[in-house]
């Protein structure tokens, strides 16, 4: 693959120009993320088996929060949005927000949210 020489000097300034952080995820980041994901999953399953906690008002919110943390972690590190161009963040966040708001709207319309998110059963 031959390169047009005109391109070359340009490529070298890409990073600074595009506001991309110099840091990149490394092996240690990757396995730490994996450990965190596993731990959160373990906690989720663990609290599922504590009947008193399942009965409490905290059960659903805590599960939702843990799930959201896992979601964000994978997106930021494994999908490297944290290190990537802000355009990709916009392309993902916009639809995600619309999807989330639509879901909330539907839950409300079908009476799933009338009592409050945290209500058990």
């Amino acid at each position: 693959m031959t390169h047009d020489p005109v391109h070359q000097p340009h490529s070298t300034v890409d990073h600074a120009a595009m506001g991309i952080a110099k840091e990149h995820p490394t092996w240690s980041t990757y396995w730490k993320v994996a450990v965190i994901l596993t731990l959160i999953t373990a906690i989720e399953v663990w609290i599922y088996y504590i009947p008193s906690f399942v009965a409490s008002r905290l059960f659903v919110p805590s599960l939702l929060i843990m799930s959201a943390v896992k979601f964000v972690t994978v997106v930021l590190f494994y999908m490297h949005l944290r290190y990537d161009h802000k355009l990709f963040r916009a392309l993902f966040m916009g639809p995600l927000i619309i999807a989330a708001v639509t879901m909330l709207g539907l839950m409300f319309l079908f009476g799933k949210l009338s009592i409050g998110v945290g209500a058990p059963n």
């Binding site: 391109h7 340009h10 120009a17 595009m18 506001g19 802000k86």
Partner: peptide, 13 residues
């Protein structure tokens, strides 16, 4: 000039 994230200043070969 090379504005952030745009190659506008790049003379297209």
């Amino acid at each position: 000039v090379d504005v952030a994230s745009k190659h506008v200043g790049h003379a297209y070969p």
